[in-house]
Amino acid sequence: MMFGASDIGLLISSTLTYATPLIIAGMGSIMSETSGVVNIGIEGKMVIGAFSCAAASTLSGSPWIGLFIAILVGALFGLLHALACITFKADQTISGIAINLLAPGAAIYFCKALFDGSTQTRPVELTGKLPLVLGGVFPENSFLDFTFKNYVSVYVCLLLALCIWFLLFRTRTGLRVRAVGEHPRAAATLGVGVFRIRYFCVVLSGVLAALGGAVIPLSTVSYFFPAIISGQGFIAIAAVIFGKYKPGNTVLACLLFGFCKSLALSLGNPKFELSVSVHLLSMIPYVITLLVLLFIGKSHAPAASGKIYDSAGH
């Protein structure tokens, strides 16, 4: 049996499902990296974002309150990273690792405290999830229906990437952010507030990473459980490096990753009667990544990324 139109539609929507959290968290990673602060704590912030959103949504009954709480919690963890790395000049990688260790622990602790000792939150009602866009517009089970009937997060994440691109490459603030990430001292001599810019970027990075985690319990599943984020934060960082720290390329890298994962699942469907080993199918994402890497060339991180900036010149 060959791929039908509806199978291709499903493949596209499945690709988007996978890519959405990666794109949102990836934009967070770009903001932080571009301003010169390495942020490997994306994974931890996604976990705490997923938990706080699921908990607030199920307790309040509204996905919007859930997202709002996730934004606050993400900002708090972003602030923690900013405080350690910018004000106290701690090693950025260590601070990121600390957040990756702290956040899942905190999520489970508060989950147990709020939900009778359970490590899962109660499921959010169907009506309490994010709205489905373009549902019922096209005939059911048609190619267009499968392709375009998605949770609103899918479309918002693409818009978000556009906004981040506009912010970084078409506004004065964006120019300053990039200057601070490339050469903070030069930027400072021209009167740019390096600390202020970096604080803004790192806090925004925390917010976006938390939102990347938060959309999962409001779309893919309907509750938080400890394994809900398993490596997506690191894949988002990889996608950013793969996409050469550019929003557009990063979106493509996330889509490529989602497509490969989905393709492996689709090809495993017994109706296609491909007697391919599951191990070979699960290699698809990595083989394609290696192939693409051959062609895209070297990825350059912002020059000051990871370096501690001391305004006193030490």
Binding site: S14, I228, N269
Partner: peptide, 8 residues
């Protein structure tokens, strides 16, 4: 991987 379960 709940996304995989959902997609399948």
């Amino acid at each position: 991987d709940p996304a995989a379960g959902k997609n399948i």
